[in-house]
Design a protein around this nucleic acid. Structure first.
Lengths: 126, 126
DNA sequence: CTGTTAATGCAACTGAGTTGCAAATAAAGC
DNA sequence: GCTTTATTTGCAACTCAGTTGCATTAACAG
């Protein structure tokens, strides 16, 4: 069950994803909004936005969950499967805009995938 | 810094990865050896085996860390980058034996990747 | 404005993983 | 086999990311 009421927290969190076009971790958001919202609220709102197909999530390397905006997903179908890149220097994480071709795997049914790349981003590659 | 002494725990954990050719989670191993070794030991030994390039690790979906045997890796070079598949029914997780072609990403340096697929395995696809 | 109910904040919690330190033990040398 | 050294182990306590229950607050419909 997703978002039912457009609360202050829903609006502000969504705005954050609109303003920046990169992935944000749960900790990012908890820090940014710590004066305004409880971390419980952050976790719950992110959960609901994912249920609604507005955001998608992936596990970062050290056990932290990241979220990014979906393109063209709905509540029932997450079709936006693409790699994510996390910079090991500055920590910034964003979606890469190429698709991974997953070959048909015999005798298995794939319903979810996540692909995480790590290294150094443009700003840190000096 | 990796393994220096061939202790009982090192031998038994390595044997577990020899016997089964699939990935094992930290929790799998903690449960299997709970009568014999402390979970601290399990975590430490896995860490050291990864340092040595004997095992590689990846994050499962729900924050649990998984390990699998490496092929041809050493302490200094992890060259064994391949997808992992986790069954959402039985939980079994193993390495898939195809490579993913990562296109050259402009202005970034990739030093690590992990690719997790989830769905249903052969046994659970009925 | 009122009533309903979803959302929020809080404290306490869970679970995966980590740390510090004393005790145990693997290995080398004799 | 014994001694010494240094690594490893087990334990208790911890951290951290995320979750839960419940009383209070606030969004929304009328």
């Amino acid at each position: 069950m997703g978002i039912i009421r457009k609360t202050k927290s829903v609006k502000k969190i969504l705005n954050e994803f609109q303003v920046e076009s990169k992935a944000l971790s749960t900790l990012d958001l908890i820090h940014r909004f710590e004066a305004e919202f409880n971390k419980t609220t952050i976790y719950r709102v992110l959960d609901k936005l994912e249920d609604d197909g507005v955001l998608h999530s992936f596990q970062g390397k050290n056990g932290v969950k990241w979220y990014a905006k979906c393109e063209d997903c709905t509540e029932h179908k997450h079709s936006d499967i693409h790699p994510h890149f996390q910079c090991l220097s500055c920590g910034q994480t964003d979606c890469l805009d190429f698709s991974i071709h997953i070959p048909k795997i015999p005798n298995r049914e794939v319903s979810f995938s996540q692909f995480l790349l790590q290294g150094r981003c443009e700003k840190c590659l000096v």
